[in-house]
Every structure is written in structure tokens, then in C-alpha cells.
């Protein structure tokens, strides 16, 4: 399947999300956090596109901006070709039925005084998914789909374990028949054995219901397992986009390399030399000039300090924002 022949279901163009900080004192300059700074990507129907990066890289902010939970500072988000950024509140509500979100901690987003039945019914009637008479059947169908017993419909959120809550979160996302689901660290808080169950559930769901996933996560092992393509973000910008295999087998950006090599592995064969980055991620208030990674990059030159690298194509399915990507690939400098 050549993905590029299809038209994207979701398109993000030059998205910027700045947050102003409260001024420290009367005379200090106004400070802005550039949480997301000019990113563009396309999400194609039926695929799972992951956004990975460390805390503060802007991956979650990107998800929130797409949903307009935070109003984007600049840029545009197209859903099926129509701009979401210019929609009115009412029109936006209709689109929100098509794009659903699953958060890391579903408990925080569930009303503690509502039974699961009430919550799902409410969500369905807001989006006017179906006539009331069919709802009951749909509720039972949803519960079996996410692997919960039908009698759980009458229970309250606090009566469930973490894994079960995440299943409820998934049921709620699914109940309005969405086309796109944004999973924001959806499995990060779960124990591995539960995490595996939820990942399997998400994958089977995607197969059966023809869903498109934007999967935001810091866990690269999970990302490798679930994605078709992967975006790597660093300090508010995209440093690399590639299909899964070429990203994990031949990472081209030095940051991606370091990130992959930093993951502890239980596999003896793969405990090779590790690239340990020096220092911390710089502040997004005053990001470094040129390539934002130059302060920690083992290969940085003076040119990297001055010139911002553009995101450019290495192959049809692999884009990278590094001046020296080709030479780094060839020489295999570690």
C-alpha cells in the first residue's frame, strides 16, 4: 500500500503554539514558551502515526492544538480538507465527533458521579449518533468490543482498575463513531501486562473499525509496536519523520539515534555502545539558535549553531532535519 497516493484525513500546516508567561516584574520583557514551533505533517486514513519525544518537546501540545483544546497561535489544521482552525464553536463540535481523544489518565476525565451507562449515553446523544431506541444495543456492543462485562455499565469510575478505566476511555472515544483517535500517552501509566492488553485492543479496533490513530507517546518500544510511521520531536520542532522500519533500523537524526540507544533493553545482542547525551533539554523560552539540538549534539559544527536545518527528504518515506544526515548515515559514527 502506497500511503502517499491517498489524500490525508488530517493535515497540519505550520502549526505554532506559543504560551505567554506571566511577567516576573514590571520591567522584565514578556516571555513566551514556544511549545510547538512551526510543524507540519499529514495523517493518512487507516494508518497509525506516532509522535515521540521527551517531556517538553511539544508532542502533547500538538495533540491539544489539533483538537483546539488550546487555540493554536498560528497555522492551520485541515480535517478531510476543511480547515478546523477557522470553524465556529458549533461546527467544531460536529468535527469533534470525528476526532476523539484518549488520555493517559482516563480517571481524571471521567465524571465520578456518572455511571458508565450515563456517560456513554450522554456522549452519544450530544453527537446525535443514533436514535434512542438503538442505543441500548450499541452500548452492549461497545462493552463487548472493549472487553468489559455488560453489567459494568451500571458502575461508577472509581470501581474500576487502571486497565479497565482505559477500556472505558476507549469505549467513550468509540461510541461516537470517530474516524481519528488521538491517543495521548494512552498506555503510559499501565503495568506492562495490562499495557499489552490495551495495545492489542487498540490494534484490533483499528483493523475492525477502520480507524486512524495519532499516537502520542514517550515509550519507543510501544511506538515501534503500534505505528506505521513515526514523528520525532525535539524542543517544539520535528527532527525526523519516517516509516517505522527505516526510523528504527536506520535513524538519521543524531537525536533519534541517541534516543533509541538510550532505551534500556533486555536483549543481550542489542546492548551496544550507548550514546549518552550531555546536559538537559534547553528551555523552550529561549531555544538555541540554528539547530535546536546543537547544544547536546555530538556532531554539531559552527554551521549548526547558525543555520536552522530544514526538514528534507532522504527517501520517499523518510524526512530529517539535520544538515549532515547523509554523512552521518554513511560513516556510521557512533
Amino acid at each position: 500500500m502506497s500511503i502517499t497516493t491517498k489524500s490525508p484525513i488530517l493535515e497540519v500546516n505550520h502549526l505554532k503554539q506559543y504560551f505567554s508567561l506571566k511577567k516576573e516584574s514590571l520591567f522584565s520583557p514578556k516571555q513566551t514558551v514556544k511549545a510547538v514551533d512551526d510543524i507540519s505533517f499529514k495523517l493518512y486514513p487507516g494508518e497509525t502515526l506516532s509522535i515521540v519525544g521527551e517531556s517538553g518537546c511539544g508532542k502533547s501540545t500538538t495533540g491539544r492544538s489539533i483538537l483546539r483544546l488550546d487555540e493554536p497561535t498560528e497555522g492551520e489544521v485541515l480535517f478531510n480538507g476543511t480547515s478546523m482552525t477557522s470553524l465556529s464553536k458549533k461546527e467544531l463540535r460536529n468535527v469533534r465527533g470525528d476526532i476523539q481523544v484518549i488520555f493517559q489518565d482516563p480517571y481524571a476525565s471521567l465524571n465520578p458521579r456518572q455511571t458508565i451507562r450515563k456517560m456513554l449515553q450522554e456522549a452519544m446523544s450530544i453527537q446525535k449518533v443514533m436514535p434512542k431506541e438503538q442505543m441500548e444495543a450499541r452500548l452492549l456492543e461497545l462493552m463487548s468490543l472493549v472487553g468489559l462485562r455488560p453489567e459494568y455499565l451500571e458502575r461508577y469510575p472509581h470501581e474500576f482498575s487502571g486497565g479497565q478505566r482505559q477500556r472505558i476511555g476507549i469505549a467513550r472515544a468509540l461510541c461516537v463513531n470517530p474516524k481519528v483517535i488521538i491517543c495521548d500517552e494512552a498506555v503510559s501509566a499501565l503495568d506492562v501486562s495490562i499495557q499489552a492488553q490495551i495495545i492489542n485492543l487498540l490494534k484490533s479496533m483499528q483493523r475492525d473499525l477502520d480507524l486512524t490513530f495519532l499516537f502520542i507517546s514517550h515509550d519507543l518500544s510501544v511506538v515501534r509496536h503500534i505505528s506505521d510511521r513515526v514523528i520525532v520531536m525535539y524542543l517544539g520542532t520535528i527532527v525526523e519523520i519516517a516509516d517505522k522500519d527505516s526510523l528504527f533500523d536506520s535513524p538519521s537524526h543524531p537525536y533519534t539515534k541517541a534516543l533509541l540507544s538510550a532505551i534500556p533493553s533486555i536483549d543481550e545482542q542489542h546492548k551496544k555502545d550507548r550514546i549518552i547525551l550531555k546536559g538537559d533539554v534547553p528551555s523552550p523560552i529561549d531555544p538555541p539558535t540554528g539547530c535546536r539540538f546543537h547544544t547536546r549534539c555530538p556532531f554539531a559544527t559552527d554551521y549548526c549553531k547558525k543555520e536552522v536545518p530544514a526538514l528534507r527528504s532522504l527517501s520517499e518515506t523518510h524526512q530529517v532535519a539535520c544538515h549532515y544526515a547523509e554523512s552521518l548515515l554513511k560513516e556510521e559514527i557512533v
Binding site: 506492562v192 501486562s193 499495557q195 499489552a196 495495545i199 519507543l220 518500544s221 510501544v222 515501534r224 509496536h225 503500534i226 517505522k244 522500519d245 528504527f248 533509541l260 532505551i263 533493553s265 533486555i266 536483549d267 545482542q269 542489542h270
Partner: peptide, 8 residues
Amino acid sequence: SLPNIHEN
């Protein structure tokens, strides 16, 4: 149940 980073 651990996803493997080195293979699909």
C-alpha cells in the same frame, strides 16, 4: 508482554 524495540 513487553513490546520489542528491535523487531516487529
